[in-house]
Write a protein that binds this DNA or RNA. Structure first.
Lengths: 353, 353
DNA sequence: ATTACTTTCGGGTACGTACACGTGTAAAAT
DNA sequence: ATTTTACACGTGTACGTACCCGAAAGTAAT
């Protein structure tokens, strides 16, 4: 018995046969390279439509020895931004899985406290040969400029961890920031009395520039929209323990009956440090991110809840989204919200970042 | 300039060169087919080791026109088992993504109330040409027998939704059942008073055979291990509204001060139906799964919390694990616990199953 | 030694696409 | 009219592996 059953009748060869041209010409049309007359081109295009031609990715990747270059642009990992170690790990994991397909990932980092470092890196990326980009659009204006340039070059990009809507990104992967603030409010509301006050704390050098924080605060406030007066808010621009302590102490002194503190990012550890060192009990503390320092406070019940968003998976999925799009030519979901996980002393041991 | 930079010096060709044989012989060794003398074989194997040869998957898939067959074996989707529609959707999604790589997914379904339907399907699968299997090992004994057969044939398998540890599965993808029960207990404990009693309800034709339910109950009990007497438990083997109502009513009558009910699966809707129809308020109701029926009760605050475990993603990941293993030859994590999400009236709108 | 058979191995083609190169033709320039 | 240039297209090889087929070498039986 011939093992050779009748072939699937698509593929460039079939197109070429029907169009009465060589496969090279078909190839030119497919990759819209030059060297094909308008007439032939449209004829071939029509046939491609009819056959609903799906290129064989396997063969394509094999034949083109060129590697695809992905670039990532995220904050550098430091004591202040330990969070980003997790997405980076996820990116590594994704790269390991798909490097077989001839994919390289170039890593670019910027300083969360420096817009210039961000733009500098975007320029580097634009100079390099790159086919797809995963970026944390921490600085809005700069990110818009960057993605405009990318759009012109027709390079797809994925936003991670915070989104800029309507920017024609391939997709967004990260938390629903607004909802994460809202949910935090919900959790806090469960645990305190109706008259208790709540302190919202933003700790960052660049509060205005990180819509990230603001969006969470909005979500938080929206939960209490009928009760705005319960919320006291402070912005802290120095991220060291000392200035955080000072500002928080001030706020607590100025407003009696604060029974809960919501810190809009991972700097919750600073606040925890203060509460613990001064032995202030009876204040519910809620913040962000599954970091060793935060977990330590969680264990000691200084921090009560940590909101987490699977940062590692964010990195993994971000790369995979580019892969799906560029290599597999598969559709990609526009938005992929990460689950908003609530970590407590009881369940942190089970959490997989 | 010659575009041809020096090649990567691995691959079968290099092996053949070093071993002074043809690539055909190397190929025989790699796929340990017959027709190679022991001496040559070991020599080639040594070189393969030395070079740390990684076959080029792209080329391999292209050259072998054979398709890989994955099989799934999960409960059929019915009114009673609506849950399984979600994993099925995830499986579909995964298949769409990887069918380009020449992968087919055969779907086998069994009746959750019939062991024989399960074994019948396993036999079907074993008769078919199959390269990897995703299964819900709902019936333990039968699943063990099945996977024994698979082990013999060297066919990898992935457990989904409930695990049988130490069975050498490629991996497990699903919730940490014990922990999900534990967490439910935690949530309930937050919401009721220390002296209130809790009713645990198992609703299933085959309670003993579905360790699934039992494992959740264990987790639940372990949270209250110092306070076992707070828990009252009933097993209901008829899944219709009527018998559920009768049994639950009985339990509520027999034990005063029951302030919370924990239903160990998606049949929580039956209980909700009873509570609503009798207008019984003030009882916290917690159960499983993001099903339309359950959500409806959640909206009306009859159900207070639903525990969910990303069923769609389970299906997606299960197929992808097989894919990673069989096609990409990439390592796969042994256990992939799904997040245990707590759905409430406030956040269900945001949930992505 | 010849035949018959088995074992061991190499040659060569195929998978579907990418792309370098060459050929042919018509228009433009001389 | 001849040369140049641009354009339109085909030929052929390569990517790295899988596997068919047949050749060579070895072994056993006659």
């Amino acid at each position: 018995m011939k093992a050779n059953q009748n072939e699937q009748p698509n593929g460039v060869k079939e197109i070429a046969r029907r169009a009465k041209v060589s496969i090279a010409t078909v190839d030119r049309v497919i990759h819209n390279r030059s060297g094909v007359s308008a007439k032939t081109r449209t004829r071939i295009e029509k046939i491609i439509q009819e056959l609903n031609y799906q290129p064989n990715i396997i063969a394509s990747r094999l034949a083109s020895r060129k590697v695809l270059n992905f670039a990532i642009l995220i904050p550098s990992v430091s004591a202040e931004t330990a969070f980003w170690a997790a997405p980076l790990a996820g990116i590594q994991q994704a790269e390991d899985e798909i490097k077989q397909m001839g994919i390289k990932v170039d890593r670019y980092f910027f300083d969360l406290n420096s817009k210039t470092s961000f733009t500098k890196q975007t320029k580097q990326i634009l100079k390099s040969k790159v086919d797809g980009i995963l970026l944390a659009p921490s600085f809005i204006e700069e990110s818009i400029a960057f993605t405009d340039a990318l759009k012109e070059k027709n390079i797809p990009y994925v936003f991670i961890n915070s989104d800029i809507p309507n920017r024609e990104s391939l997709c967004y992967i990260g938390p629903d920031l607004f909802h994460s603030g809202y949910l935090s409010a919900h959790v806090i509301n469960y645990c305190i009395q109706p008259r208790d006050k709540i302190l919202v704390v933003n700790v960052s050098h660049e509060i205005e520039n990180h819509h990230h924080l603001l969006r969470k605060e909005e979500g938080f406030r929206s939960y209490f929209k009928d009760n705005e007066k319960r919320i006291v808010k402070i912005d802290i621009r120095q991220t060291n323990d000392r200035s955080v302590e000072k500002k928080v102490a001030e706020a607590l002194d100025n407003t009696p009956n604060i029974k809960a503190i919501f810190v809009t990012n991972s700097r919750v550890a600073n606040v925890a440090h203060y509460l613990e060192s001064k032995g202030r009990k009876g204040i519910l503390l809620v913040g962000y991110d599954f970091l060793p320092e935060n977990i330590a406070y969680l264990q000691r019940s200084v921090i009560d809840f940590l909101i987490c968003q699977k940062p590692q998976e964010q990195g993994y999925r971000g790369i995979m989204a580019l892969y799906q799009h560029l290599v597999m030519a598969a559709p990609v979901e526009k938005v992929s919200f990460m689950p908003i996980d609530i970590i407590t002393r009881e369940n942190y041991a089970y959490y997989k970042n």
